[in-house]
Design a protein around this nucleic acid. Structure first.
Lengths: 221, 221
DNA sequence: ATGTGTTTCAAACACATGTTTTATTCAAAC
DNA sequence: GTTTGAATAAAACATGTGTTTGAAACACAT
């Protein structure tokens, strides 16, 4: 094969540009010219733009899900019962291990994840659900076991509150960081910010239920 | 003028469809046919699609910002120093007062807000910043005063963690609620979920700073 | 060298988009 | 009744899109 890295170059450019502008807003022509590749190469190698989008996610989500799965295996093997902080910390650690592709880095990874949620790209959500749903279900089950004894639906929502903090913060990281620099002269790395997130999230998960809602679920002690 | 409500009908349809699919993914033809209005009406009444997008936000953000501003005036007049929980509660209360337009409701409002952040629609962010930046700055300053004595940049990030939880949860509310129903047979209203958010966020804001940042070291190579 | 299957390339295709144009309709003012 | 200006309608416009085509270039085994 000539130009063995054509596929990789397309993926690198697509990854970067998707994170920058979104899926619909990034044309194949922008991608291919940025990757210094012929326009037809995308449809030749991938088949369609939809499949290219999925391929971008697969490339960094596959090893991520694998590593997360291994961690979960270890936990189940040792029969350990990790606590809330330990679990969140584990997830963050695996997130930070995501390998930068080309000039792309962790921010791109996080922004793509957030876009996958926000942008109503129906096929993408379905794709990610069927491919990675199993691993995340396992992780969620551990979270449920580790959480303080709250009603299941309370826990469910709190987990999503957590996800929201992480997704939003990371996807808008560059903007937020720029504002931070302008206002108090400090900048942060993605790792710094994840470390800041950890106690925030753990405290949120451990917070008492709102009194209004606790009415249905009275504790007479 | 004939058909006095043409503008309103366009705004109703656009609001609903933008929230459903996103801005780039919603064509003017979809909007006008949904609003039972001629295609050219959008450019005649608004000038361009970009301006239509901004108009959709202005219509529900103007009264919202006004009410929030009034609340802030009251606080400054009385010289009160509201606490964290009080402040967040105040914001949520104002959010829940946002009037449904046509068949649209609070979910549409929240989803549009989240889209404004996620979708890199540069002109929108700039527009919202210049029009509503002042009110939100006032609110943020109150938050800073109400927060426990943390370094300013710590506070800054935590406020954004909060925003993330709210935005993400509300923008994906329908999906999350559907999953909740499938898994434990319970559904929630937007109001329920905001009430659940309140203690979660307040606890997060009050969490101790992590002294030892115990995220494992990672080598990217 | 030759032949073969793969990859690249320029061009064209079919279609959807936002926008503009031109003509028509309509309600109210004179 | 006529006139005037705004609102609507249908059509065309210009452009950008994802995709397909068919020929050329290429690597490589025979």
């Amino acid at each position: 094969m000539a130009q063995i890295d054509t596929v990789e170059r397309i993926l690198d450019a697509a990854e970067y540009l998707f994170a920058e502008k979104g899926f619909s807003e990034t044309s194949l022509r922008t991608i291919t010219s940025h990757a210094k590749v012929n326009l037809a190469a995308v449809n030749y190698h991938f088949g369609s733009k939809k499949i290219l989008i999925q391929a971008v996610f697969t490339r960094f989500l596959d090893p991520f899900a694998d590593r997360l799965g291994n961690r979960l295996d270890e936990i189940e093997d040792t029969g350990a019962q990790p606590g809330l902080e330990e679990l969140v910390n584990m997830l963050f650690t695996e997130i930070m291990k995501v390998k930068p592709r080309g000039q792309n880095d962790l921010k791109v990874f996080m922004r793509l994840l957030a876009l996958a949620y926000a942008q109503t790209q129906g096929h993408l959500r379905k794709h990610l659900q069927t491919v990675y749903g199993h691993v995340f279900s396992r992780y969620f089950r551990l979270l449920v076991k580790a959480a303080p004894d709250l009603p299941e639906q309370e826990l469910y929502w709190r987990i999503n509150f957590m996800m929201g903090s992480v997704m939003f913060t990371m996807s808008d990281f560059d903007t937020l960081n720029a504002i931070s620099e302008a206002e108090n002269g400090t900048t942060a790395t993605v790792e710094d910010t994840l470390r800041r997130l950890l106690p925030f999230l753990v405290s949120g998960m451990r917070s008492p239920q709102s009194t209004v809602l606790r009415v249905e679920n009275v504790d007479h002690s």
